[in-house]
Design a protein around this nucleic acid. Sequence first.
DNA 1: AATAAAAAAGATGTTTTAGTCTTGTTTTTT
DNA 2: AAAAAACAAGACTAAAACATCTTTTTTATT
Lengths: 151, 151
Amino acid sequence: MLSSANKYAIRSVLFLALYTNESKKIGAKEIADKLESPQPFLAKLLQQLTRDKLISSTKGPNGGFFLSKKNKENTIWDIIKSIEGAKKFDQCFLGLSKCSDEKPCPVHYIVSGFKEKILKEFKDKTISHFADEVKRTGKILSLKEFNVFND
Amino acid sequence: MLSSANKYAIRSVLFLALYTNESKKIGAKEIADKLESPQPFLAKLLQQLTRDKLISSTKGPNGGFFLSKKNKENTIWDIIKSIEGAKKFDQCFLGLSKCSDEKPCPVHYIVSGFKEKILKEFKDKTISHFADEVKRTGKILSLKEFNVFND
DNA sequence: AATAAAAAAGATGTTTTAGTCTTGTTTTTT
DNA sequence: AAAAAACAAGACTAAAACATCTTTTTTATT
C-alpha cells in the first residue's frame, strides 16, 4: 500500500510531533536510531519533507529537525504526497486505470468504501491530532522502547 | 497493496473463469491481449498458477489455459499466496513488525477493520462466486471491450 | 578566525520487481 | 513420421525502489 519510504516518513513526522518543538530539535541520526530505520535513507526523506515545508530544520551545532506549530497542522496525506505522489493510493486494486463506481472491477465495492474512509482520515486529521492520540493512548512508533527526555 | 504480478494473475483467473472450461481453452497470447498485459510476463504467471493447480493447461495445438470446476472453487487469496506469498498483505501499515490490537501503531485502528474485511472476502468467496457476480452485474476485467465468443 | 556539528545536495551502489528472450517439451494434425 | 502449435523452464535485461557515500553549505561555539 505504502512504500517503505512513506512509512519511515510518516513515523518520523509523528515522532517529531511528539518529541520536538522550536527549541528542542533532534538530529537525523537519532531519529533513524529511535525509529530503527536506515540512517542515510531517512536523511534523504527528511530533506524532502523539509523542502516541502512539512518539517523544519536548522543547520549547524545544536541544529536538527523539529516540527513547528504550523507543521503540525499538516496531514498524513500531505506526507504521502510529498514522498511518492498521491497516485499510488488512489489506484484500482486490480490495476485498471478506468475502474470507477460506474465501471467497477470485480473487487471494486469490496475495497472502495474502506479506501475512502482511510483517505478521509488521512486528509482530515492533522499531525497534531495523531500525536495527541498517541500520547493519550500510548500507541507505538517503533519496537524500541524509548523516551527522548530521559536520554 | 498488490504487486502488478498479482493484479495480472487475479484478472487472468477471473477471465478464465468467465470464458473457458474443459472444452474451451484460451492461449497465453490471447489472454494477455484481452487483458492488456505484457504477454511473456503473463505467461510466467500462468505457469506459476498452473504449478500450484489454480488453473489448468494443456499443451499442443488447440491447447491453452482453462479453469476446471475444481479450479473455480479456489479463492483470490489462493492466487495471492501463489504469486507473492501471503506476507505482504498482512503487514502493518507503518511497517512495524509487532503492530497489533494490543500494541497498535498510530493508524492501526483506521486500517485494521478494512484489512480484515477485505481479507475475509478474499479468503471466503470462491472464484466461481466472483465470476458469477461479474456476469450478473457487468463488472470489468479490462478497458478493452471484448467478447471471446464472437471472435 | 578556526573548528566542529549539523543539514543539503548529488553521485553512486544494491536489491527487488517487472518484463523479455531463447530453448525445450508435449501433443495434435496431416 | 513430420510439422506446427501450444505450454514449460531457465537465462537474461530493464526499471524502480531502497539505500549508501562523498562533498558542500550553514551556523554555533571556542
